[in-house]
Design a protein around this nucleic acid. Structure first.
Length: 291
DNA sequence: GCAAGCCTGACC
DNA sequence: GGTCAGGCTTGC
């Protein structure tokens, strides 16, 4: 499932292979995927050159320049759960669930958007709309500072697992890397986010960076469908320590990994390395001394 | 029937 | 505002 490392891998692939090229023709096979009228979508991005590639969290934006006086546009890409953006020879047969084709230049190659589960989307937006989308996201999980992280967690009463998945708080983590980071930091997924002790919070901030950076270096995880723009799967899956390993031994202590639902999401953790937090008395109410 | 990410809406 | 449940979709 595309989370920050997978989206970053796609971004790098596009930067290497698509930056500077021109979208010469647009074919929308499934109008719902672009959330707008296919004809105006094709008109707006057709003929544009790819001038830049931005990413924040799991959201990708292709910066497009038309070359004439028209204002620049952004093609916003959210891969959702099973979205794939691939660079494909135009004569390759269309795989099922291919929704959009963007021909590049006239050298017989195209970008194809494919998405069996249809949770993803492509959207053409103005720079202002793109800014709004980026602003609605919390800080990127690879860029947030220790201090920002602490401030963002302060006072949050919900479970840390849900907080890590909330893209308006922190952008980039999905279920896989949230579970991996919590394991790395030895924090139980149900721990109230605002009640994580200072030392554990610092560990968690470090764990997020460490897990994501390693996954980026290995081109992400291909748990089910994820592939990069050249169709290659990621290499991080063998490094997963808890995700998808229910009942298998914990890599640290051999206790069987458990899976529970937290905030409606399956959460994998080691009951021994990540003990359930004790109930802590609510702070700020010291018992009055009786005279 | 379940899982995923994300949007919407209900509830306090 | 924060928090959480429900719904979307489809391959396993």
């Amino acid at each position: 499932m595309p989370e920050l490392p997978e989206v970053e891998t796609v971004r790098r692939g596009l930067e290497r292979r698509v930056l500077g090229r021109t979208i010469s023709a647009v074919q929308v096979l499934s109008p719902w995927v672009i959330r707008s009228d296919p004809r105006s979508f094709a008109r707006e991005i057709g003929g544009c050159r790819v001038e830049g590639l931005r990413r924040k969290g799991k959201t990708l934006a292709l910066e497009l320049e038309s070359g004439n006086s028209a204002p620049c546009r952004y093609l916003i890409v959210r891969l959702g759960m099973t979205g794939q953006l691939t660079l494909t020879p135009s004569e390759s047969p269309l795989l099922p669930h291919t929704h959009v084709r963007l021909l590049l230049d006239d050298d017989g190659e195209e970008l194809r958007y494919r998405d069996p589960r249809r949770f993803g989307m492509l959207r053409c937006s103005t720079p202002a709309e793109a800014e709004k989308i980026f602003r609605s996201l919390g800080p990127d999980a690879l860029e947030i500072s220790q201090k920002e992280f602490e401030q963002a967690l302060r006072g949050r009463r919900g479970a840390i697992k849900g907080w890590l998945l909330d893209q308006s708080m922190l952008a980039g983590l999905g279920n896989i890397y949230a579970d991996e980071a919590l394991f790395e930091a030895r924090i139980h997924p149900q721990t109230p986010a605002g009640k994580i002790p200072d030392n554990a919070r610092i560990l968690l901030h470090k764990a997020i960076r460490k897990v994501l950076q390693r996954a980026v270096n290995l081109q992400g995880t291909s748990f089910r469908d994820y592939i990069d723009i050249e169709g290659r799967p990621g290499n991080f899956e063998p490094r997963l320590r808890v995700y998808g390993r229910e009942d298998k031994p914990c890599p640290r202590c051999s206790t069987p990994i458990r899976r529970v639902l937290v905030c409606g999401r399956s959460s994998h953790f080691c009951p021994r390395c990540q003990p359930r937090p004790r109930r802590i008395a609510p702070p700020g109410k010291p018992r009055k001394k009786r005279e």
